[in-house]
Design a protein around this nucleic acid. Sequence first.
DNA 1: AAGTGGTCTAGACCACTGC
DNA 2: CAGTGGTCTAGACCACTTT
Lengths: 254, 254
Amino acid sequence: MTAANRSSSTPKLQAQPLYARVQQALVDRLIAGNWRPGTMLPSEFAIAEELGVSQGTVRKALDEMTALGLLVRKQGRGTFVAEAEDTSILFRFYRLTRDDASTALAAPAASFPDSTYLSQVCGTATSKEQEVLGLNASDKVWRFERVRSDHVEPILWESLVLPVSRFPSIDETTQLPNNVYQFYGNEHGIIVARVEEKLRAVIAPPNIVSALGLESGAPMLEIDRRAIALDGQIVEWRTSLCRSDTIHYRNELK
Amino acid sequence: MTAANRSSSTPKLQAQPLYARVQQALVDRLIAGNWRPGTMLPSEFAIAEELGVSQGTVRKALDEMTALGLLVRKQGRGTFVAEAEDTSILFRFYRLTRDDASTALAAPAASFPDSTYLSQVCGTATSKEQEVLGLNASDKVWRFERVRSDHVEPILWESLVLPVSRFPSIDETTQLPNNVYQFYGNEHGIIVARVEEKLRAVIAPPNIVSALGLESGAPMLEIDRRAIALDGQIVEWRTSLCRSDTIHYRNELK
DNA sequence: AAGTGGTCTAGACCACTGC
DNA sequence: CAGTGGTCTAGACCACTTT
């Protein structure tokens, strides 16, 4: 971008720095679904030339998007849209660990649990579901229930609520995979940018006690999670009830 | 740094990029206590000249340290060592929120709780304390117990264990302030770089029930926290038992 | 006006990957 | 070997704060 057209597009006060506008332009393409997870982006120089800015400015935008977990950069190969199955991306949103894990606190979880689906129903969103997912009264949702187990035992019961409008291809026969965020990205072009969680301690409900083989009245960790897509909309409401006798939730604050 | 002395100090293969070595040099000064929290660092150009590198390289190091929460940059003023009382630094390590808070999930906690200290004793580290804090059998620790309350009610009971060797100025008469990380930084030059937490659900112990006015058998959130200083050593072991009927733990994963 | 951090550019060279 | 990202430099200019 020359001095002339920079000053013409933003006369004096530029609302946003150039690299931020470049970043937004790239994020917009991700939202539009132009680039699915795993896709290789054009090179820094190609993007720079296309947008009329310098390569250093594109680099700053790409670096920030990489820090946000949206992109993965591989020296000598290229810049790619992050995939849920990328190493260390897999565990980005998974914080449960066995108490007896020999690893240090900072180490990643040893294993990613598998899932057994218990139910899969479609219905009109309840008022609470409307509020959480930002839906209207007539909107429909898919509701899934599953039990997740690690290599030792069942560790949690989980409920997933998805707005039908964002997942039009789901039907009664759809087999949700174990890694649902990979499914959201590859099948629906929905990239989960971040998740917000609320954690509480609760007493295990009787039906969960039997499903997980717990003692009656056992304390459990309840995790209320909302997954937010790149466009800022909540695309999944998840409630997990995790056993707390052998599993804990690890967190690192920086 | 000229091409000549760069190639002489790192003949061909440089183990670390230059900005990383600059960053480590600056972190080392923080560890040594040369710069207390709130201190203004030399300007980018001054650091660059002193270390014989370009200003852009210093900038990259400072930007990373800012991202780690170690520094605070203020345009037109300078770069400062982060203080625990800096806005938004205050809540960096505090994740508890009232259930009825009208704020969105992403909003910061409404209030920082105050503390009532229950006990303050010095003793030889137990084997568990030795393991957690990396101490020897004869090492001593300070143990504090406190109850923390927000504007409504007591919300948690908390135990703090500190190695005496890192906090030589503490004695029986020391009044720990409410914001202990500020105290660590200003009084002992200990900068907490990050904390690691393990969360579990437990049944409230009888003595906690009475201290917080809970119902017998209530589920509580147990938070096992280790605070890690810049030098990588654990300087505080904290165990919190938080009421779960009106308070939750919020987390955002990116 | 002087000094600070923030943005942007242009170009050089290095390190890694894949053909 | 060509193409990619990664590092480093030098310099220009902008925005903000303090004197």
